[in-house]
Structures are given as structure tokens and as C-alpha cells.
Design a protein around this nucleic acid. Structure first.
Lengths: 207, 207
DNA sequence: TACAAATCTGAGCGATCGCTCAGATTTGAG
DNA sequence: CTCAAATCTGAGCGATCGCTCAGATTTGTA
């Protein structure tokens, strides 16, 4: 019994239907970034997707479900990308691993920065914080576990607090760079300095 | 010719009118934090303020002006508080100054954390980023100038980038603490570790 | 080709919401 | 007290928007 999730009315059975759903979600993202949630009417989203309003409501029970589903698609892509990279850097020394992680985080945000921004802005009002803080907690746990696995001498007494602070710092730097310093995401200095921020905070004997 | 600002229809001349405006703004804040922008109808805001809908539109030309004005009131209060504190810590050694600044930032956010959160979420969609990034830039400039005035040996080559990163990191930690770790704002460990984060990043020879 | 299931269509209903306006009430100056 | 300016009131208009539904169209199967 593979029931449809709460935010879907039914699952597509034909390829055509899947394409319709994808088009609707993509149009939702475009409208959100261009005019914001309120002005992104469901009729406009359907028109933008090249689909009738009826089709939209055949798959999504209400407007908020659009944002929720879009968020799930986007975060899913980012999470997959990150989990892969974290696994790949297991063998590296800590300094290099952090540097690689920071760079892949910056890269992950460069894929669709506008969409990411608007989701971060809109989703809390729509779906509660769970869907975002959930991802945060996953990342925090992942990193703390990885840190504890290593035998580096770490400075912070409360490693939980430390990772909490660092994850949010790096995220904030990334987001702020997207907004205030367009183009800085590709700048090597940003990745380098962010790595330094992390390592100097973390290591008992920083380089 | 002291004309009314763009986001006000006219300036109150009697004390009664000023009280009405204050009540409307306060009600706006309450509604925003409780139900969000979309569900905060102007009629509900007026009712909450104990005022008729006509009075509301006598002072504010449209709904968005409410948020803009509320943001100006709130940010004004916070800015005044911070500028005062920065000036007061001029004489302190860098380490103590940073610690004091971090603590006053945490304190400033503790005053009305929910309101602050909702404004950060809503204002970008309403009034563009200017009103928020403006405050950020002010703080960044203030701090960079203060750092350059001192003769401490600093590590970062690009001090602009460094302060940019730090301000956003500290802000993010503060906001994340508000959301994910209620009560942590009063925790001394958070302020201490945040201070450490800043100093280790900034100083050529960290403690 | 025949037919049922899946999918798509779009006019328009019901409800809400931002905002106006004509008039009632209060305030302060002379 | 008088009166004009300032302030307040709230029913309701116009417009929008989320969403439904009855039927048209397409797809997969046999």
C-alpha cells in the first residue's frame, strides 16, 4: 500500500503526469523567486507551467503543498549531494576535509541560489521549521560523528555546541555571500577564510 | 516642511493619534508573530489594536506600510542600543570588547526575539533587502573602523571580508539559538564560545 | 479497433481581503 | 461656550484568489 504523501493528492502513473508535476514544481519555484508567495497565484503557476489549473489541483491538494513539495525536491537534491561528498572525504586529514566540505557547500548553494533563498524565506511560514531544521540537525550529527571518529585534539569542551555554531556560521556566510556579494561564491578567498574560521575554532593547536 | 514619510499618510498631531499609531504597530507585530503576514488581515490588526479599520488607513496607506514602519521602529531601537554599547567599549582591550559586544548582541536579540525573527522573515519580501542589509553594513563598517583604530596584530589579509564573515556568523548563531535552542541566549557558554570564535579568527596570535 | 482508466481542461463559485467614504465624535484654541 | 480641525467609525464595494466539477481528451491494453 504505497499511499500518496499528505501533500500529494495522488501519485502520477504515466510519464506524462510526472512531467506535468515536474513542470508545476519548476513553475512554482520560478514564480516564488520572481514575485514571492502571495503574488504567486495558483492560476499563474499553472499558466506558467503550461498546464490548466485543474491539473494542478489534481496532484496538489492546496497551494501550500506546492511549496512543501518543491522544498522536498530541492532539499533532497542538496542533501544527496552533501552526503556523498562527506563520505568521499573520510580519508582526508581534517584540514583538507573541512576545506573540501566548505567548498562543496558553497558549490551546492551555487546551483540554485535564488530558489534556495526564497525557500528559506518562505518555508518557515508554510510548513513549520521542521523541514529545514531537520536538515540542519542531520548535517550537525553527521559532522559531529565524523569529528569524534577522528583522534585530532579538539579545543571545544562542548562539541555539540561547537558544531551547532559552526554549521550555522558557515551557512550564514554562504547565504550572506549569495545576497550581498554576488560572485563571491566562486572566489577562493571566501572558501579559504571560512575553512580557517572553522579550523581555528576547532583545533586545540591551530596552524 | 516636515512632510510625512512615504510609508505614512500623515503625522499624528495629538497625543491620542500617536497612541493609536503605536497600538496599530504593536498589534501588527503581535499578529505577524502569531499568524504570519498573509493571515494577518488589516481588519484583524485594527480590531487587535482596539481601533477601527478606518483609523488604520488614516495613517498607513496600505498593508505593507505597516510592516515597513514596524521594522523601522524595531530596528531603530536595536541600532540605538548597539551604537551606544559599541561606543562604551572603546576603551576596553580587544578581547574584552568583543566579549562585551557579543553579549550585548545576544541581549539585544532577547528583547523581542519572536518579533525580530518574523521581521527578518517577512521584510525582504515586503520592502526589499535594503532596510536590513543597511543595518548590516552599518554594523560592519562600525566594527571594521574600530578594528583599524586599534594596533592589535590581525591575521586576515582582507579585513572587509573577515568582518563580513564574522558579523554574519555571530548573527546566525544568535538567530539559530533563538529558534533551536530556546534559553541558550542566557547561557554564558554561548557568549564565551562565540567570543572565542571571533578572536581565534581575528588575532594573529590567538590566546 | 474498442474501451476503461488516467489525465487534462477552464469557466466560474464562494469566500476573503484590502481599502474607501460619508458621516459621527473628540479635542483644543479663542 | 463655539467652532473648526483633528480624529475616529464601520458598513460595504470592488477585486482577487483558492479551489471545484462536469465533461473533453489521451493513453495503455487486449
Amino acid at each position: 500500500m504505497s499511499a500518496a504523501p499528505d501533500n500529494l493528492r495522488k501519485l502520477p502513473k504515466q510519464a506524462r503526469a510526472q512531467a506535468t508535476m515536474d513542470a508545476i514544481l519548476t513553475a512554482t519555484g520560478a514564480m516564488l523567486t520572481e514575485v514571492g508567495y502571495d503574488r504567486a497565484t495558483t492560476n499563474a503557476i499553472a499558466r506558467r507551467a503550461g498546464v490548466s489549473i485543474g491539473s494542478l489541483y489534481q496532484y496538489f491538494p492546496h497551494k501550500e503543498a506546492l511549496v512543501t513539495a518543491l522544498c522536498e525536491r530541492h532539499m533532497g537534491e542538496m542533501t544527496a549531494l552533501l552526503i556523498g561528498e562527506v563520505a568521499a572525504m573520510r580519508g582526508l586529514p581534517l584540514a583538507q576535509a573541512v576545506h573540501a566540505l566548505v567548498r562543496s557547500l558553497l558549490r551546492a548553494h551555487s546551483v540554485a541560489p535564488e530558489l534556495h533563498r526564497v525557500l528559506i524565506e518562505q518555508v518557515p511560514r508554510i510548513a513549520g521549521f521542521e523541514r529545514i531544521t531537520q536538515l540542519d540537525r542531520l548535517i550537525i550529527d553527521l559532522i559531529r560523528t565524523e569529528l569524534e571518529r577522528r583522534d585530532e585534539r579538539l579545543r571545544p569542551k562542548d562539541l555539540d555546541l561547537a558544531v551547532f555554531m559552526l554549521v550555522h556560521s558557515v551557512q550564514a556566510i554562504t547565504h550572506a555571500a549569495i545576497l550581498d556579494r554576488p560572485g563571491a561564491l566562486a572566489d577562493a578567498a571566501l572558501a579559504d577564510e571560512t575553512t580557517t574560521l572553522v579550523l581555528r575554532f576547532l583545533l586545540a593547536d591551530p596552524p
